[in-house]
Design a binder for these strands. Structure first.
Lengths: 343, 343
DNA sequence: GCGTGTCTTTGAATCGTTTCAGTGACACGT
DNA sequence: ACGTGTCACTGAAACGATTCAAAGACACGC
């Protein structure tokens, strides 16, 4: 019904005080006497006053908002990272607004522009492709930026990321400790750095055991279907050609491999063949044999990203930090018969 | 390096014009001569001027931003709806900012407050629990609101939603047309309206066939595990107790049923047993036998929601509209041997 | 009665933009 | 030469909040 929104002046008139007093009630209640405070609060309630953030921000010169740009909100990694970031920000009196670039440089650029015009306190960006020029331009204008899931090669801004070499090492080490020696790594041609890192880690683990061998089976894509193709080929093997442990570069591949191995040849998992994936997607706990996998510490990454950003906002001259987390092993039934807890 | 951000005044000084002229270059380029326009543009580029959205908004009284609050960004339904909404909004010169309530009333309230303080043009809300009071308060202050995936019982605001009764009908009708007559519906006790609606639709379809029967099997939850339990019970049946078609209230249940049916008894899908789910989650195309399912027209819903909102923004007095979409059937291998296209 | 200090309240300046009435400049027709 | 119109540009008001110096009220001690 109200045609134009209620301003602080309307509240002041209603309560019979100066606008400065209303502002004090909102921002420094202690400075105002109890009687006045109540009267002003009453006027605010009666009029349904909602503070105009644009005006506040204009005057204050800074907002209480953090921009977060992710590659894909549909990806559980990013959605739970976003949630953790929101929690951490709200504990610090800020709000996170989310932009989904959908791996599209144009959309990414649009969100960066919008956030900059909105004068967000800072941005958390999981960048598409080349980070360099765009982020540098932002930094030149004094906008704090923290990279997520990617490191700035030039160390110009702080970042949080995961050590995939360590992850690959953990996965294969786990297979080896379970007594497996004929290990297969299933992954795409190492076009992604992440796949390459996981393989590197796998190699390091195998080298620690004299009697262990690692074979690489190439998949066409990082999908269930590609995993099933790879799995079928492997499942058909006889004798010593058949591995006793498989490490897949992600969970989708592992699920495909599991489907093939169980159905084509009726092998038992983990007795005949131990299987481990990577990422811990939602579905991995619900496969026929629950999938052991390696998980990024998502919540921790989200919180840390916000903390690094707030640090930089408060002390713009402080040194940039590259925080690299180790992933964690999630043991389920596909590698061990006795699992601690099935989720 | 720059300590305080560049303002329109700095640009004006640099270009040797009045600030009004700079504003015209930005907002009404046609009013400015080509020579001046270039000079101003040059100054903008040299100084890296970025427009202050707070000041613009304060003066203009309205932003170019739409707030979208979803129950769970991790849910593919919402993430693709969000993407469609963003696309539609950007075609109309607006930007969508996303808030994730995580099914939490407190977080939902916080986002509503933040968005209202930011004076967004309007909000799209997929509400947690009771819509009434909160939305009514918003509307009283003149804030346009469109509900997503839920109808306002009092028809106070526009909404986009899906007809789950029609969806349930389509699913079972599809089974019946494939010659199945002993149908089982797997779902939770009808606490969710959505589950109840799907069952209602299923009943309607069965009633059209004299020789068809519908049995309801209750699951403990809408999860893969609960589906597996239900599936095991069903798979152990002999003779006429064994259905030839199963409709699950969502895809997770269907996946669990599939796991049980294939492994426990080694039944063939779809020959012995046709199976259909609901939602078309990502994984449904990658199950051992690709899952036939029912999908909400997500993109259409996102675009329509934005259109309804823009309509209301432009004509606040216009009539509210409840748009209800029919879902669509996605045929895959779990119901028919010859599938058009396997995704 | 007067200076001092504390507590509350006031009112004006300010942030960076948009908008709009007004000022020149210049061309054109009469 | 003069009115009329068009076009490009100017300068100040306005948006709604925060902030801060200053004023007012009051009590207290001397």
């Amino acid at each position: 019904m109200d045609r134009r929104p209620v301003s602080i002046k309307d509240v002041a008139d209603r309560a019979g005080v100066a606008i400065g007093t209303v502002s004090n009630v909102l921002n420094h209640p202690a400075r105002v006497s109890a009687a006045t405070r109540e009267r002003v609060q009453g006027a605010i309630d009666e009029l349904n006053f909602v503070r105009n953030d644009a005006a506040r921000q204009l005057r204050a010169g800074q907002s209480r908002t953090i921009g977060l740009i992710v590659l894909d909100v549909g990806n559980p990694f990013f959605s739970s990272l976003a949630r953790a970031a929101e929690d951490c920000a709200s504990e610090n009196g800020s709000t996170v607004v989310l932009g989904d670039s959908g791996q599209d440089v144009v959309r990414e650029a649009r969100y960066i522009d919008v956030f900059e015009q909105q004068r967000v306190q800072g941005m958390l960006i999981s960048p598409v492709g080349d980070v360099g020029p765009r982020v540098e331009a932002l930094r030149k204008r004094g906008m704090p930026v923290v990279l997520v899931d990617r490191v700035d090669p030039q160390r110009r801004c702080s970042s949080v990321s995961v050590d995939d070499i360590a992850g690959g090492y953990m996965a294969v080490r786990h297979l080896l400790e379970a007594g497996r020696r004929r290990i297969v790594f299933v992954g795409t041609k190492a076009d992604y750095r992440q796949v390459a890192d996981r393989l590197t880690g796998a190699r390091q683990a195998v080298e620690e055991y004299d009697d262990a061998v690692l074979e690489v089976v190439e998949a066409d894509a990082m999908t269930v279907l590609a995993g099933r193709d790879a799995g079928e080929e492997i499942a058909r093997r006889r004798g010593s050609g058949l591995p006793d442990g498989i490490f897949c570069a992600n969970d989708l591949l592992a699920i495909g491999v599991m489907q093939a191995v169980l159905l084509i040849r009726g092998l038992r998992i983990p007795e005949d063949l131990a299987l481990i994936g990577y990422d811990d997607i939602d579905f991995s706990a619900s496969t026929v044999v629950p999938l052991t996998t390696v998980r990024k510490p998502t919540e921790l990454m989200g919180r840390t990203a916000v903390e690094l950003l707030l640090e930089e906002i408060e002390a713009p001259a402080s040194r940039r930090r590259q925080v690299i987390f180790d992933p964690e092993l999630v043991e389920r039934g596909s590698t061990t018969t006795s699992v601690r807890a099935g989720v």
